[in-house]
Nucleic acid binder design. Structure first.
Lengths: 339, 339
DNA sequence: ACCACGCTATGAATCGTTTCATCTCGTGAG
DNA sequence: CTCACGAGATGAAACGATTCATAGCGTGGT
């Protein structure tokens, strides 16, 4: 009921030593004689002392946390990335503050402002769009920022990304090879680099191929299951003659939504419409019709991003690196050979 | 490149006022004359000043964050809860620190220790098991702790939960009504209250019914898709005569894994084996065979938990409340009438 | 006997903000 | 002309840990 937290001074008194010694026990125990150390530890547990991290931070200058800013926590892709980040961070004794932007600039901005006030050791972010003064401001203040799931400018920043152009191309080539001639790209907003590049990749496959293939676009307001369902409803409402033979979705959430809506409307996948998703989240394989998808090394992405961040904070002569992973197409039932 | 952060003193000098005034501009702007305020704001943005939150916290005594400790971030159930929490927290200008325990006591403990050092305003936790000195210690220190997805002790603590006994009963009754006589419960570890209660609820339905129904148990090491797949493989390996006619899974991740493994082994759901899951995550409806599941009000759970926490921090005469929501059975294809 | 050295322990200064008692100054009332 | 008052502004104290220069003390070498 008390609600009082003893401080280091009270511990010192109780143990009959100075505050400096208590601090040493906490931070450099090897400097303290064993019996003194034991006495201090006893005092700490008797009083239930818990170090005040703000005071520590204030003195030391930086915190023991890193910020991870993602577009959507509900997307398993990001939670898997987060796991990778957490793994590395915990190993270093750092805490991860997970922030969710929901593709909303306002939220992104306020989260970054908060992280700046907290003096986090660094920020891992998947920015909503390209121009971001906020990120530059953070860097100016001395906080390393690593971009993930998006390539950074060489020499200027570290980044970890997966080649989305290639991913888009792989998906489209696969569909073209299967004989599809009417492909519909579903995704959005196009302000998201991922969306744009997956689309561009698909387009390049179509343009460089010999087959006569057409690709239309259906823009969604976000990349989640609900948006996918809506898109699917629209697709199902098209006159049969205008129905695409294949749909390439900007991510698996959208693909699952589309799949659900199409199935609900009585269309058969892949017989009437084939579907390819992106990310290969765990649920893709367990979907109504197991989903073909472009796999990204999610945890590795997170781990690598965290490691780059750590490198940037610890290395004196840091060289910015742009790591790019290659995606891999996983073919499942949803894109079996076309009609 | 500088990496220097100006402090409030430099802002004061630049604006030609005292530090107290700058602080007032930041915290109680109505006390400051308009032109002074403007001058200070100008100085702030010219210098790129960012308030140092540790110093603020040190002085004020508590932080502007709350901790949310969950069993598994990769489970959409928890991310939906987290969304609810975040919604309320952001509205109050609080940041949420999301911690993941992976059902590991060691991780739970170290996360709680960190949150204590951070002097968070409060903690929302879905504890791994019942006896937790760490939680008591936090409370003793004056940090409110609200339990979620688990009922608390009346008069002692706030909690938000969903009636898992009822959920288990609903699922089992549904299967019994459909004529199933061999039910297999898949889930674990049983140290998780959710698992135990869902099982108990199912058992009570069986015992109170008139039909002759048998329920076996297959324990999993965790509640995720991989564990479900393994369980599914084991089920598929059973001699046909021992095959259960229905499987009730402790959550949807396990159910999806089981579904995937059974389908892969050539068993038909629900014809050979019916499946009922728990949580009704978004992916349940989009599964290979749309999954029957016990729905919990996930976001509401999160919102309510956060609100209880806020109430506990702000109300002088706080009455602990234990909120219990009722789950709802959603029937889909995976549990259509049995063979 | 003296000095030097290593091992421990000390305590004051410091980090940057908030808070609050106090001061200044201009205005209006008496 | 004086006084009281209020709006604004001030600056020093406080928050609690860390750090570092310094002091104390015992030991071993000369």
């Amino acid at each position: 009921m008390a609600g009082s937290s003893p401080n280091i001074r009270e511990v010192a008194v109780r143990a009959g030593v100075s505050v400096g010694t208590v601090s040493n026990v906490l931070n450099r125990p090897e400097l303290v004689a064993e019996q003194t150390r034991e006495r201090v530890h006893a005092a700490i547990s008797e009083l239930g002392f818990v170090r005040n991290d703000s005071a520590r931070q204030l003195r030391v200058g930086r915190s023991r946390t890193i910020g991870l800013v993602v577009l959507d926590v509900a997307n398993p892709f990001f939670t898997d990335v987060a796991r990778g980040v957490e793994e590395v961070a915990n190993r270093e004794g750092l805490a991860v503050i997970l922030c969710n932007t929901d593709e909303d600039h306002h939220k992104e901005e306020s989260h970054l402002a908060l992280l700046a006030e907290m003096r986090v050791q660094g920020v891992l972010i998947n920015p909503i769009d390209e121009s971001d003064g906020r990120i530059a401001a953070l860097r100016e203040r001395g906080t390393p920022v690593v971009l993930f799931d998006r390539p950074g400018k060489p020499g200027e920043e570290c980044s970890v990304a997966v080649d989305d152009l290639l991913g888009g191309r792989l998906a489209a080539e696969h569909l073209i090879d299967a004989g599809h001639q009417q492909i519909l790209f579903v995704g959005g907003p196009f302000a998201l680099r991922q969306v744009q590049e997956r689309y561009d990749g698909a387009l390049s496959a179509i343009n460089s191929g010999t087959a006569d293939v057409r690709m239309d676009v259906m823009t969604t307001p976000a990349l989640n299951v609900a948006a996918g369902r809506e898109a699917g409803d629209q697709i199902a409402a098209l006159p049969r003659t205008e129905l695409p033979s294949a749909v390439f979705c900007a991510n698996d959430l959208v693909a699952l939504g589309v799949l659900q809506a199409l199935t609900h409307a009585g269309l058969r996948v892949p017989h009437d419409v084939a579907i390819v998703g992106y990310d290969d989240i765990d649920f893709a394989a367990a979907a109504a019709v197991p989903l073909s998808s472009v796999r990204q090394p999610r945890q590795l992405l997170g781990r690598t991003a965290a490691e780059l961040l750590l490198a940037e904070t610890s290395e004196a002569d840091h060289e910015h690196r742009q790591v790019v992973f290659e995606p891999e197409l996983i073919v499942r039932d949803s894109s079996a050979p076309s009609r």
